[in-house]
């Protein structure tokens, strides 16, 4: 599988992507592109299909019984729903951070960070220690945990746990990071830390983030996609969407008239 990075090119390209649960269409024919090392925020009211769309991109949607996807999703040059593509393999190139922090129970902080490597059979201690430090530094957690790496991951605070999950996701070196409302369960200080961290992360990875917090979307993203009832209503640069949206629904949403 060739996933060589092309500077400045498109990282992710969605073409008429629809997602279903049984016969119910949750995401309706969505198309957009995300450029390499850009942050795109997916906004929209609850239940509009943002999370489902995110889960289509790393083929997690299909793990739910009765769920299926139509359309084309390209990661760099690779059609991730192509017949020869192994979903397990593709997920190792796409990191994901969930709404609720979910460090693995019974795993120490260190074991959590390198879980994606050790479980796949990487054993070399010096390499693992290296990856752990690099990932924890990138997740702005190293200074807080460097002396307690053997403590259980679940002994950290909620905000630290979420940064631990970010470290775990980037430890396998993905080129794309999906974030599903990563700060909605956190307090404002932890949220601010994670937002800050995104600015550093985007130097190396492309980020697609679902958020309910419009201020957050405005602060952190380069592009914004607004979804409503499964449709992609509008996509554009953050400045354009928040200052002069072309669609009246977008304008109503971002000005707080509904949602």
């Amino acid at each position: 599988m060739n996933l060589g990075v092309q500077m400045g090119g498109e990282e992710l390209s969605l073409e008429k992507v629809s997602a279903f649960f049984g016969k119910k269409e949750i995401v309706k024919s969505v198309s957009f592109d995300v450029a390499n090392r850009e942050v795109m925020a997916l906004i929209g009211p609850s239940g509009c299909g943002k999370s489902t769309l995110l889960r289509c991109i790393n083929r997690l949607h299909e793990e739910t019984p009765g769920a299926w996807v139509r359309g084309r999703i390209q990661l760099k040059n690779l059609d991730i729903y192509g017949p020869a593509v192994d979903p397990v393999e593709i997920r190792s190139h796409i990191g994901m951070v969930f709404q609720k922090p979910n460090p693995f129970p019974g795993f120490s902080i260190f074991e959590n960070v390198v879980a994606g490597l050790t479980i796949r059979g990487v054993r070399k201690r010096s390499y693992l220690a290296d990856v752990a430090e690099r990932s924890l530094r990138a997740a702005a957690l190293w200074d807080e945990v460097k002396d307690i790496l053997k403590a259980p991951g679940l002994s950290l605070s909620g905000g630290q746990q979420q940064r631990l999950c970010i470290a775990r996701a980037i430890a396998v070196n993905p080129s794309l990071l999906l974030m599903d409302e990563p700060t909605s369960a956190l307090d404002p200080i932890s949220t601010a830390k994670i937002e800050e961290l995104l600015f550093d992360l985007k130097k190396n990875v492309t980020i697609l983030i679902v958020t309910h917090n419009l201020q957050q979307a405005a602060r952190i993203s380069d592009q914004v996609a607004f979804m409503y009832l499964g449709d992609l209503v509008e996509v554009g640069s953050t400045a354009q969407i928040f200052t002069k949206p072309t669609n009246v629904q977008t304008e109503n949403y971002i000005t707080g008239r509904f949602g």
């Binding site: 790393n58 997920r91 979910n102 129970p105 994606g116 479980i119 796949r120």
Partner: peptide, 28 residues
């Protein structure tokens, strides 16, 4: 063990089998 832990494992690019053996069984 809530299902989202399994999803976290799958999202790391681990097979179902490895998620069960190395995450589900281990954490319980």
């Amino acid at each position: 063990l809530p299902f989202h832990y399994r999803e976290a494992g799958l999202a790391l690019g681990l097979s179902r089998w490895r998620v069960i053996c190395s995450i589900v069984l281990r954490s319980r």
